[in-house]
């Protein structure tokens, strides 16, 4: 691994962690979706760079899926859903921004300590990639538990999943990466469709009852 190649991979993966932290404190719906779109673009660049340095052309497919689906299609679709649901003003956060950011930094530190220690024998690029990927995954989980709004939870889940793709792309020569990224895309498509069809505004406990009454009427 040449110095420049390593630095670029490092910068892109680090940028992903930074964007994950930025996602944590976005309190406006559209801003959240914009940052997420940027997150997906950086992921796509990062995977494409891995494809370049690993000489693994199939990873370009994964990068392309990330770019088209997660940087374009899904943010646009979610934007329309947000408008339709009338929740484009603010997002409530269960825990305040300060404690959330502190917890986020703690999680990043934790994943660095755990992964760098656990992967002492692996090659340096894979080590750093895994450590960054775990940070992104944990930050995504943190976002899912601190938000009540279904759309921002979905964004949290997708950022978590971006971390997975980063880890899978960083694991040199791993088979089935493309297949797994496709499987994940199907999953995400289902989630988005679910939010849209059932007008799910908040996680678990509240669903728009008006929309459900229509379903009930249909069965009678």
């Amino acid at each position: 691994m040449t110095g420049v190649g390593f630095d670029i991979a490092h910068m892109l993966a680090g940028g992903l962690v930074l964007l994950s932290l930025m996602l944590l404190y976005q309190d406006r719906m559209f801003a959240l979706l914009n940052v997420f779109a940027l997150h997906a673009v950086v992921l796509s660049l990062s995977v494409a760079w891995q494809a370049q340095v690993q000489h693994a052309p199939h990873l370009y497919i994964t990068a392309l899926i990330a770019l088209v689906l997660k940087a374009l299609v899904i943010p646009v679709a979610l934007r329309r859903i947000v408008v339709r649901l009338g929740i484009h003003r603010t997002i409530e956060t269960v825990v305040g921004i300060g404690p959330t950011m502190l917890a986020g930094m703690g999680l990043v530190a934790l994943s660095m300590v755990v992964m760098l220690k656990a992967t002492a024998q692996a090659d340096p690029l894979a080590r750093e990639d895994l450590a960054f990927a775990l940070s992104v995954v944990l930050l995504g989980l943190l976002m899912m538990v601190t938000r009540r709004n279904a759309v921002s939870q979905v964004v949290g889940f997708m950022s978590l999943e971006n971390g997975m793709i980063l880890a899978a792309a960083g694991a040199k020569g791993m088979p089935l990466v493309v297949e797994i990224s496709i499987a994940f895309s199907v999953l995400i498509a289902f989630i988005v469709i679910g939010v849209f069809l059932f007008r799910i505004r908040e996680r678990f406990d509240s669903v728009d009852v008006g929309a459900l009454d229509a379903f009930r009427g249909e069965r009678l």
């Binding site: 775990l134 889940f157 880890a167 289902f190 679910g194 669903v207 009852v209 459900l212 379903f215 069965r219």
Partner: peptide
């Protein structure tokens, strides 16, 4: 397609997705 059924499916979906996402990380 009742209120409760959709809520249950959504809850299962989100928790199940997080679960299998973590399992994938372990697999990697």
């Amino acid at each position: 397609r009742t209120h409760e059924a959709i809520e249950a499916a959504w809850k299962y979906f989100i928790l199940g997705s997080v679960g299998i996402a973590l399992a994938l990380f372990g697999t990697i």
